[in-house]
Simulated scan of single mutants.
Amino acid sequence: MLYPMNVRIRDRDVVVIGGGKVAHRKVLGLLDAGAKVKVVSPELTSDLLSLADADRISWHPTSYEEKDLEGALLIIAATNDHDTNLAVKMDAAPHQLVNLADDPAESDFQVPSFMKRGRLTIAVSTSGASPILAKKICTQLEQTFDEQYDSYLEFLAACRKKIISSVKDGTVKKQLLMAITDSSFLESDEREGRFAALLEEAIKEEGQ
């Protein structure tokens, strides 16, 4: 059983063992999250080499050794040799989390397929049963949660701050937070004005 969570890895050390296409995909996701990525591999794909030349990743052009794992929060074993990937798992310290790209069942964590719309992130996992199906589901979700959710999430975030700072009654806060998630706010061109009126009315009622 997996425990789903979002992990903040900005400026944290992550090690990727392997320099192929799978490693490249993993590295891109890690860089998007702001991680400090070290790649250990005698050779790199041209895309990874470009990242190394641009100093976006640290490249150690050697075969894997246990010392390569020192200081890493997360470790991804993405070589084309299963025995090497298992060795990485065995060498990791108890506090380090390891993902084996070719063996989800033996991994401490799995990287799900996901879609993003601004602040909205939806992750889909089949627990390793079918990554292809997970990607298909994400494609369907992208059609449901289209580009309008970018601005809508920014609106919700701003409203939440105002509600928390302006309204004292817990029940009223919850009612307002629920109200702005109604689909009519998502589709409205005047949602800021509608929210301002709702908030003003709630504050007036509290003051009576």
Rank of each mutant, 00 (worst) to 15 (best):
F114D: 02
D53R: 10
L2T: 08
A129T: 10
H82T: 12
D146L: 03
L30P: 07
H82A: 15
Q96R: 03
G34S: 06
K162P: 02
A134W: 08
R191D: 08
E154W: 00
F145I: 09
L31F: 09
I122H: 01
I180K: 03
G170N: 09
V22M: 11
E201S: 13
Q208V: 13
E142L: 07
E70V: 15
N99S: 12
L141C: 08
V40L: 07
V111I: 15
I57D: 03
G20V: 13
F155V: 05
V7I: 15
L49T: 07
E192N: 14
K36Q: 12
S50Q: 13
V167G: 03
L86P: 00
D169A: 09
L86Y: 00
L86C: 09
Q208S: 12
L176R: 03
A101D: 05
N80K: 05
S166R: 12
I57R: 00
E106R: 11
R117P: 04
R25D: 15
F195N: 03
V167L: 08
R194C: 09
L199P: 03
A35K: 03
Y152M: 10
D108Y: 08
L120P: 01
F145M: 04
G128I: 08
N80S: 13
D182H: 14
A157Q: 09
A157V: 10
D47I: 04
A92S: 14
S127R: 04
K161C: 06
A158W: 02
I180F: 07
S151W: 01
R10G: 11
Q175K: 14
R56G: 03
T62M: 06
I9R: 04
V39E: 04
S63T: 15
A87H: 02
D169W: 00
E106M: 13
L133E: 08
M178C: 10
V27T: 14
Q140L: 14
D47V: 07
E154S: 06
D108R: 02
I76L: 13
K135W: 05
D169F: 02
D189I: 11
E205P: 00
D13N: 10
G34P: 02
V16L: 09
N85D: 13
D108I: 14
L73Y: 13
V14W: 06
A35T: 11
G34M: 11
E43T: 08
K38V: 15
I203S: 04
L100W: 06
D103Q: 06
R117M: 12
K38F: 13
W59R: 03
T45Q: 01
K89L: 15
G170K: 13
K116L: 06
Q208M: 11
S188P: 06
